[in-house]
């Protein structure tokens, strides 16, 4: 389910993008699932076509969906590939931590700080 709250301070395109991205990441929307057309979703959610188009464009740039011409937009395998990259990077990081002797709590704190810096 996608919820768009017009009173929310988050712009509608961002609300849509975040919810679709989350549902793709947690496999609520499986790889290969066909999404509604931009026009259709805009009508369903009472949004402008451009707003939905922007959310789709950003999801496409993130590799989460792909547009196959007139066939429409589909959930791509990009989310799985991103997760696999993250797993590999985590394994490399764990190896560095083990070799330098930094304890686990501090290692987690370093990751959290890096994530916060990335988000902020």
């Amino acid at each position: 389910m996608i919820v768009i709250d017009v009173a929310s301070p988050t712009p509608p395109f961002e609300q849509l993008r975040v919810q679709l991205a989350r549902q793709i990441q947690d496999h609520t929307l499986a790889v290969g699932t066909r999404l509604p057309t931009i026009r259709r979703l805009a009508a369903d959610l009472g949004l402008a076509v451009n707003t939905v188009g922007r959310a789709f464009r950003e999801l496409e740039e993130a590799g989460l969906i792909e547009t196959r011409g007139r066939a429409g937009s589909f959930v791509s395998a990009g989310a799985e590939q991103s997760r696999e990259r993250a797993r590999r990077a985590a394994a490399d990081y764990a190896a560095v931590i083990a070799s330098t002797g930094i304890d686990t709590t501090e290692a987690v704190r370093i990751v959290q700080a890096a994530l916060a810096a990335e988000a902020g």
Binding site: M1, I2, I4, D5, V6, T33, L35, P36, L45, G46
Partner: peptide
């Protein structure tokens, strides 16, 4: 009249 709208992502 709805303050928020809900839809499902699968047509």
């Amino acid at each position: 009249t709805l303050p928020r709208r809900v839809a499902y992502p699968i047509p």
